[in-house]
Nucleic acid binder design. Sequence first.
DNA 1: CAGATAGTTTGAGTATGTAAAGTATCGGAG
DNA 2: CTCCGATACTTTACATACTCAAACTATCTG
Lengths: 167, 167
Amino acid sequence: MLSGVPRRPDKRILAAEAWRGLFDFIIATADHRNQVLAQLGLTPNDSRALGSLERASGRTMSALAKEWRCDASTATWIVDRLEKRGLVERRAAPTDRRVTLVVLSPGGLKTKAQLTRGIYKAPPELLALETGELAALRDAVAPLATRPESVPAAPPQARERRRRAAD
Amino acid sequence: MLSGVPRRPDKRILAAEAWRGLFDFIIATADHRNQVLAQLGLTPNDSRALGSLERASGRTMSALAKEWRCDASTATWIVDRLEKRGLVERRAAPTDRRVTLVVLSPGGLKTKAQLTRGIYKAPPELLALETGELAALRDAVAPLATRPESVPAAPPQARERRRRAAD
DNA sequence: CAGATAGTTTGAGTATGTAAAGTATCGGAG
DNA sequence: CTCCGATACTTTACATACTCAAACTATCTG
């Protein structure tokens, strides 16, 4: 009596249902995230970049390009932009004079902190929940934990050269 | 002994913790969402637009511009693009010849269905959870439910004219 | 007819991306 | 030590996706 029915199908359905709810919430709160960026005058790209950088230890251009999965020249462009705004500094690497190390400037550190603070501030949709619901949500979300690094606020845009989707 | 400590602070902390987990998950799964778009050759904008349109009933340009919170000329541009790709059609409104009604083309309907299917498919991160965890997550997410409408996959980019964030 | 309305066109700017060529530097072979 | 190919980064040229503002066209309504 107790079984014979495999669990697999249930799991997929559960995942789909959970995802559906999460996805809708992601969409619903997108404005909140964008506002934080807009208030700081940052683009999604800037945000991602700040997340990869620190004040103390520098990262090489090539490391950044790899992390951002973009061309080296694009990384140059991104860092140029941040540098012009005074958020980052380029430094010569002591060991290899070809290498450029990028670090946050004092202002960049401050901006990154503001970004982190703003982004991790719960959106109003969440505050509308009951305390008990919030606790349940927090616990349910915990096992999803992944890389604790970085503060990127939006991923690189979905790009792909022209493709007919409409047949 | 039992109290004096108000509940409010707890709630805010709970919300922050829950949000932190959700936010990290949103970032972690961004690739999944972008891939769906890339496979269909759609931009985030396209996706949002398809979500607002149907095959049967048309929507006016102005209604779309309002929903997308963009300029009327921008709406024209967006619809132009979709029309060139054969995903939507413009129709004359019967009552007012100034008005244009936009509907999905048959191909657009198909693409929208593919988009919906792809986007509501749970990302691998979720499938890694235990069945019990998934059930808890689904239930915890349920009270967040908002507007059941639309399939937008990514919100308009955070834009704002130059602002110094670094002082 | 005189506005008001719905949409489009035009012009301009930002953000983002690739590709290819150029520059400086390094590390090893002779 | 010198020359040579690899490396790290930048520059230049170009393309796409968005976006707004202002001017323009067609149409409606009083």
